[in-house]
């Protein structure tokens, strides 16, 4: 590089070529800016500015109808003492802690079963994947009916087996497990597709060696499969956690029908942070307060995403 620079300085012919290169470079730069301009503008307008605005708004009492007053950290102080908000975050954590580990574990077991040479693999793969692309609002309605205590088929099946009816959809104690179940049901196919890719990278010789040592299927699962796909497992856990923190649709479909009684026990047991932000801003018109809750949620997701980024290079399936 240094050599060429000297050569260019020494010889006029090269000097001309350098000027030409510069012109080309300028042209390339101009096109570069042109290509990224619309996208960059979009990101500034629809992500960066709203983000900064959230922080500012979270320190005001804005309702969209009044002139906002600066409150400092008062919203945050209120937030930490607000029982409803505490419940929203408790529910969100409960939902995330229920969904992520159980969902990933079930997916791993199923993916392991599927990775053995069995027939109908691609059939199974599609069947398990379909819930993932289906509309959460619609499937919540179906599950609501299927789990209904009077007309639901799940209770009919329980009754046929001689069990008592279970009020899955109206018992506040059961609504969270039901939400976790529906969410796991939706996520399994996606987790499985990614795990299957990871499982295919395990050399068959590992299992053969284990078999010679007399290890059974369960032992192989815990001593070979889990350790080798552990980066994928961890990745999926973080992804599931982050997605669970954004839960809204299921809650809206469950609570929305009880909008009048949104302080009721069923709503209290199922409301999540994003639902709380929705309710505070668009029903109670406390934009500033809702923004403060959004900032807290953001900080939690930020930490989780940071962990994910740190671990991304350990994720095997990037080929």
């Amino acid at each position: 590089m240094k050599e060429t620079t000297e050569a260019i300085l020494a010889e006029p012919a090269h000097k001309r070529r350098r000027r030409k290169l510069n012109a080309m470079g300028r042209r390339e730069a101009m096109w570069g800016y042109l290509f990224i301009a619309p996208g960059t503008l979009g990101v500034i307008v629809f992500t960066l500015i709203p983000l900064l605005f959230s922080f500012v708004m979270s320190m005001t009492d804005w309702s969209m109808l009044n002139t906002p007053h600066f409150l400092g950290l008062a919203n945050y102080r209120e937030l930490f003492q607000d029982k409803t908000v505490r419940r929203e975050f408790q529910n969100t954590f409960l939902y995330a802690f229920g969904t992520a580990p159980i969902g990933v574990f079930i997916s791993l077991v199923l993916a392991t079963l599927m990775s053995t040479k069995i027939r109908g693999r691609s059939f199974y793969r599609v069947a398990y994947f379909l819930p993932y692309v289906s509309m959460p609002a619609a499937i919540t309605i179906v599950w609501q009916w299927m789990l209904n205590s009077d007309t639901g088929i799940v209770n009919a099946a329980l009754g046929a087996l001689g069990f008592n009816k279970v009020a899955f959809m109206s018992d506040p104690k059961l609504i969270m497990p039901v939400m976790i179940f529906i969410s796991i049901w939706q996520m399994i196919g996606y987790n499985m597709v990614i795990l299957l890719a990871g499982l295919q990278n395990i050399p068959q010789t590992y299992f053969d060696a284990a078999k010679v040592d007399g290890a059974g299927g369960v032992k192989q699962f815990f001593t070979i499969t889990i350790p080798i796909v552990s980066p994928t497992i961890f990745f999926l856990m973080i992804i599931s956690f982050i997605n669970s923190f954004k839960a809204f649709d299921i809650v809206y479909m469950i609570v929305g029908a009880h909008a009048i009684t949104s302080g009721g026990p069923l709503a209290n047991a199922s409301r999540t942070a994003v639902y709380g932000i929705y309710e505070k801003s668009f029903i109670e018109l406390r934009m500033g307060y809702a923004a403060a809750e959004a900032v807290i949620l953001f900080l939690i997701i930020l930490v989780l995403t940071f962990v994910q980024f740190k671990l991304q290079n350990r994720w095997v399936h990037y080929d």
């Binding site: 709203p50 900032v295 997701i301």
Partner: peptide, 19 residues
């Protein structure tokens, strides 16, 4: 861009709505 990749859109609904 990478920094903003971490921002969940759910968090931005209020300012985006005002916009």
């Amino acid at each position: 861009f990478i920094c903003l990749l971490m921002v969940p859109t759910q968090m931005l609904i209020v300012p985006r709505y005002i916009m």
